[in-house]
Amino acid sequence: MTVRCLIVDDSRRFVDAARGLLERQGITVVGVASTGAEALEQAAELRPDVTLVDINLGGESGFDVAGQLSRRGDVAPSSMILISAQTEPDYADLIAASPAAGFLSKAALSAFAILDLLGPLDGDSLDPRSAPRGR
């Protein structure tokens, strides 16, 4: 059983790169959503183990989407991670106030970093050798 991941991000380029990296590191990207509405739909359908939510989601706020996702209950708040091209201190307050489990800078994204944040998940098929820590 692998870790199933939903990425909520409106940047095609990033999603492709992230998918390539995460899948090599043992996380299956089962769904991609580029808007809040799509995210809710996909979350209900896919019930992912991990959900990555971009903070700068085009016209929408990733914080709002994270809030909605957690209220709908299809995604456990503890399995939600906010991501951004910015670094953490820029959004510290908002991240702290959000139900999400934590924050990852996009550049530092890796299966390892995700698992580090969320703790051990069901999926233990990760190959530590192919997942060097961040940068």
Partner: peptide, 22 residues
């Protein structure tokens, strides 16, 4: 800058990491 250049650099960074792991 954010939607274009920054995202491109981020993606580049991830691809680089992917190449590194290969």
């Amino acid at each position: 800058l954010h939607d274009g250049t920054q995202q491109r650099l981020v993606s580049l960074c991830l691809q680089l990491r992917l190449a590194q792991s290969a």
